[in-house]
Design a protein around this nucleic acid. Structure first.
Lengths: 118, 118
DNA sequence: TTTCTTTATCGTATATTTGCGATAATGGAT
DNA sequence: ATCCATTATCGCAAATATACGATAAAGAAA
């Protein structure tokens, strides 16, 4: 006799999807907050930028900005170098371009498979 | 005499950013889950698709798939038409292309402002 | 050494997302 | 009218994200 009780739900099912789908989703997630898009814009304008400069521009607390920077770094979109007591961030153009290309090809691929069926 | 006590945090600060940043972030958010990318792929392959077909393909419960479909619809990426007891979904190519173009231009714009500064 | 500046991290509160089962609602079939 | 198939929605639990203040850590400056 077997008794199974589901006490918890909301399992993370992301890993049940393809690697490509997971990668694209992770990239989209990294830029799915306006603060992070704003950070990328600031970094592009100044080329290099320390955390404090970004904090001055964004309407967010220092700890929150630091958190967003960490997520962008984890996603590989930016690099961070310690410069004395400061942290100097810059866009990882190579990674950013790669993701941009893959994302752009999503649309193209979908259009192609769509044409094949009709 | 004024007494201000902050009892709650985690205010939603998204509206403090520009409309463009919010729009791009919302689009990225819509495709920031592998299940939703998978749904778009299925819809592209079959051109039109009822909810049940998607449920069969994805490793998710019917209610969960329905929820993801709702989000894609709210983001404007897909259209849904009631067909008897079924719901027929299809990609809104026009909206999808618009977002794709705007997203692609994010990279281009960032590269441009970066060139200007250096 | 002590102090100051800067940033990362911790702790906490809240909001949102993800996921499922159960159920309601809709329309076709009997 | 009753039953069946399909889908949207509700209610709930858990996970994740967002945001802040406080604090730790690390290096520069005194």
């Amino acid at each position: 006799m077997v008794l199974v009780i589901y006490l918890s739900m909301a399992f993370n099912k992301k890993e049940e999807f393809s690697t490509k789908e997971q990668e694209l989703a992770a990239f989209a997630k990294a830029i799915s907050h306006p603060a992070r898009i704003a950070i990328l814009t600031v970094l592009a304008k100044k080329n290099e930028c320390i955390c404090g400069e970004i904090v001055e521009i964004l309407p967010l607390a220092q700890s929150t900005v630091s958190q967003h920077l960490k997520e962008l770094k984890n996603a590989g979109l930016i690099d961070g170098a310690i410069d004395g007591p400061r942290s100097c961030y810059c866009i990882n153009w190579k990674a950013f371009e790669k993701f941009n290309a893959e994302f752009g090809s999503l649309f193209t691929k979908l259009k192609e498979v769509n044409k094949k069926c009709c």
